[in-house]
Design a protein around this nucleic acid. Sequence first.
DNA 1: GTGCATCTCGATACACCGTACTGGTCGATA
DNA 2: TATCGACCAGTACGGTGTATCGAGATGCAC
Lengths: 233, 233
Amino acid sequence: MRCMVSGMLVWERPEPPNRPVPAPLSREQIVRTAIRLADADGLDAVSLRKVATALDVRPMRLYGYIASKEELLDLMVDAVHAGIRPVGDHWREVLRSHAEATRSAAHEHEWLADLLGGRPQLGPEALAGGETLVAALGDIHVDAVMPVVAAVKAYVIGAVRREIAERRAERATGMDETQWQRSLGPYLERTFATGRFPALATVVRDAAHLDADRTFRMGLDFVLDGIEAHIAR
Amino acid sequence: MRCMVSGMLVWERPEPPNRPVPAPLSREQIVRTAIRLADADGLDAVSLRKVATALDVRPMRLYGYIASKEELLDLMVDAVHAGIRPVGDHWREVLRSHAEATRSAAHEHEWLADLLGGRPQLGPEALAGGETLVAALGDIHVDAVMPVVAAVKAYVIGAVRREIAERRAERATGMDETQWQRSLGPYLERTFATGRFPALATVVRDAAHLDADRTFRMGLDFVLDGIEAHIAR
DNA sequence: GTGCATCTCGATACACCGTACTGGTCGATA
DNA sequence: TATCGACCAGTACGGTGTATCGAGATGCAC
């Protein structure tokens, strides 16, 4: 009566398909796959099932390497941080380069905008980036270092989120800037036509429109100038 | 043969349960309910089913008022914007008050941090806030108004997200600051003990730790000071 | 007034999600 | 070799957003 599975005797049961070497797996492989999926189709395309399928593995297998989906997202973010290494000598150079590198990463991995600032970044790569940053801020009074770093990071997170959000909205309505203007334009046009937002309407219509690059750098300059003033004081 | 439903004759069919006046509904009611749920148990507690249940209505009924869940979230954010009205005379006052009001709103509705910056805010309340803001920036050159507003908003979004994220992390590990220190402390302690992040370790150990309020205001001052310098130039 | 076409609306159903549970398998130990 | 224990992963559960489509209501032509 032993050796029975679901009522079939050994004789009728097919051999286990020669035990295909259980696909070797690693956290790094899982994370890389998840990032690939997210890059291709956004964060919504990252589900444990899809990642598992892409790795030719059953979903529950992943729980040997991560405890929850949230952990996977944390790992993805930290993996991207590996590519964000500020460079430069002067504190201002370093902070600016960190900001630009973060923005570039978000351009390459738009899903990063959804995750940035969502959870504290304590992974090794993020900490390493922070180390580089802090190390380059030796000139600054020790009590001011964290607030300065926090301010720059906060600005970058918000600016990148806004930029990516706008980019997506453009893409969603039509595809290029022409379509965007045709689709959002009319809405704002109608809204402004109500006369309820005169100041806003004036600025939107009359002011020069900076592109995303210039807008980002201008805001960043505000922050850095403010920091510089504080340091000099 | 008329008046038949699923093969039952009139006699066997129970009367329709005296047609309870279909619960009156409105977008505002739906949004208010969703906000109540989110306030109580976070954004995850907001599902169309739960909102519908709370309103004693079937889920699909909601689609008469909104086209998708995303629209509901947009409406929630805009509803909160109704409470964010900057005040003051000088441009600096106004920007600061907008920043503080946004932060307060996020303290009252933590889920706001998850949504801020995630999509362009074009709802009437958000636009009204923008109008007030822009109107108060008359002193500033028209071409600089949008970049200035964008910079402040970007900083606020990032700072609030970081703050709420940290607050949640604290709450998740134990409950109060004591627990937090016991739980994260050891992790950072061990990590720093590796000697891989000397500068970071020094700053974290030696620097004065600002509370959330001071950190937020300090960063905000950087931004505003930078803007002031730009205007004066 | 009556029969029919039309429209509206919401219940049902689908495809998918994260992950708790637990049965089965396998390795180590006595 | 027999038994026990640990561990792995398949099954299954309770949930999600929303497409579909049939039933009921409504308005209209005669």
